[in-house]
Write a protein that binds this DNA or RNA. Sequence first.
DNA 1: CACAATTAAATTGCACGCAAGTGAATTTTG
DNA 2: CAAAATTCACTTGCGTGCAATTTAATTGTG
Lengths: 159, 159
Amino acid sequence: MKAHTTKTMEIPQEEKRLEKQLCFAVYATAHAFTRAYKPILDKVGLTYPQYLVMLVLWERGELPVKTIGEQLDLDSGTLSPLLKRLEQSGLIKRIRDLRDERQVIVSLTPRGEAMKGEIDTIMTAIGQAAGCTLKEMAEMRDMLHRLRGNLGRTGTDGG
Amino acid sequence: MKAHTTKTMEIPQEEKRLEKQLCFAVYATAHAFTRAYKPILDKVGLTYPQYLVMLVLWERGELPVKTIGEQLDLDSGTLSPLLKRLEQSGLIKRIRDLRDERQVIVSLTPRGEAMKGEIDTIMTAIGQAAGCTLKEMAEMRDMLHRLRGNLGRTGTDGG
DNA sequence: CACAATTAAATTGCACGCAAGTGAATTTTG
DNA sequence: CAAAATTCACTTGCGTGCAATTTAATTGTG
């Protein structure tokens, strides 16, 4: 594998500004989303990552920890304590799989299932806060999806 | 102020899927960016948020903590320990302002200033990882900027 | 079937991010 | 000018994220 000359040609000053950085736009918008969700999620006692886990379970039903991690791009170091909190909140159960005792199957309790009724309220509220047209939202989502695909397959080429 | 009927009309199942959520696209892309930056930033001994602080200082010169926080949308609870680590790394100085002793002025050390030479290498590497055209990047950045503006001014209407 | 390699989840350690509270300095007000 | 209100940074506590390690279970191999 011959490395092509990683040519570091001069980038114009203007392009180096924080406000010009796509990475920062994504970073800051992610925080803005979390903050926008907070007052809404506080009412149902969820953090934003916990809400994402609930979304996955509402959509797909009971799942092993591994699969939840694949859906959300999170590892067990993040999920294990998070799921423990959701369990203590009485929203999910964690049961070790009898077929394969390495796995833990996560499923919704009746309370967790019932909370699914809140989805519309939550999504409507956020949709209004975002203040985008559905077309814009879809467009942005697809662009981000592509971008994420590109970034994900970065071969950690140099180290 | 009469609340307009927060009409929670039915959202189609398909739209509730995780993959359809713009918030998740932003969330996951932010993490993908951080991971893409990691091998590059490891070489210069910075975390991604630390890199953002350095960007601000390279661009604007010495600044009080407050202003850095405004630029990055971070509060002192996040910045104080982060800046302390950058100081221990020998990249910045923190000096209490003599005019207003409530403020702490953050400035670059010679080592921090010298690191500015790494910018081009870092940005070029990330640019290649992102694999977008400059037009796409600009487009996405501007859409995110607008979105962030909308989310930021969400009046926490209900609590 | 024993034994090495692999896999899943949990744990540990560190660095954010943010709410809430503290303490010191400055500004506002009476 | 003195007291009250505000501002700034720091600290504390909690919940992520993630690398690295640990423990237990399963799979692959001879």
